[in-house]
Simulated scan of single mutants.
Amino acid sequence: MHSSTDQGRYGIVGRRGRVGSEVPIDASSKRIPSTGRGQRKDRGSSRSFERIYKGKIILAKDSRRKINTAQRRRGWMFRQATEKLAERFEAADEGTFEFGKTKLRFPAPVPHGEGESELGWVLPCIVEKAKEKVFFAPDVQGPVVRETVDLILREKPHLLVMGGPPTYLQGYRIGDEFFRTAIRNMEKILGTIPMVVIDHHVLRDEGWYKFLEPVRKSAEKANHKLLAASELLEKEPEPLECRRQSLYEQDKPSKEFLDWANLPEEKRSDKPPPLTT
Rank of each mutant, 00 (worst) to 15 (best):
L104T: 02
L104E: 03
R105L: 12
P107M: 03
P107S: 05
A108T: 13
A108I: 11
P109I: 09
P109H: 11
P109W: 06
P109C: 04
V110Y: 10
V110D: 02
P111E: 02
P111R: 07
H112M: 09
H112F: 15
G113W: 05
E114N: 13
E114H: 10
E114K: 11
E114I: 06
G115F: 01
G115W: 07
E116T: 14
E116N: 15
E116V: 13
E116W: 14
E118H: 01
E118T: 14
L119G: 08
L119I: 12
L119Y: 13
L119W: 12
L119M: 06
L119Q: 15
G120E: 10
G120S: 08
W121K: 09
V122K: 06
V122W: 09
L123T: 06
P124C: 03
P124G: 03
P124K: 03
C125N: 08
I126L: 10
I126E: 04
V127N: 11
V127G: 13
V127Y: 03
E128T: 07
E128I: 05
E128Q: 13
E128H: 06
E128S: 11
K129C: 04
A130S: 08
K131S: 14
K131I: 00
E132A: 06
K133R: 14
K133M: 04
K133Y: 02
K133T: 15
K133I: 07
V134W: 08
V134F: 09
V134L: 14
V134G: 05
F135P: 07
F135C: 12
F135G: 06
F136W: 09
F136K: 05
F136D: 02
F136Y: 02
A137T: 13
A137G: 03
D139A: 09
D139V: 02
D139M: 00
Q141G: 12
Q141E: 15
Q141S: 15
Q141D: 10
P143H: 08
P143I: 07
P143L: 08
V144W: 00
V144L: 03
V144R: 08
V145H: 12
V145E: 15
R146L: 11
R146M: 08
R146I: 12
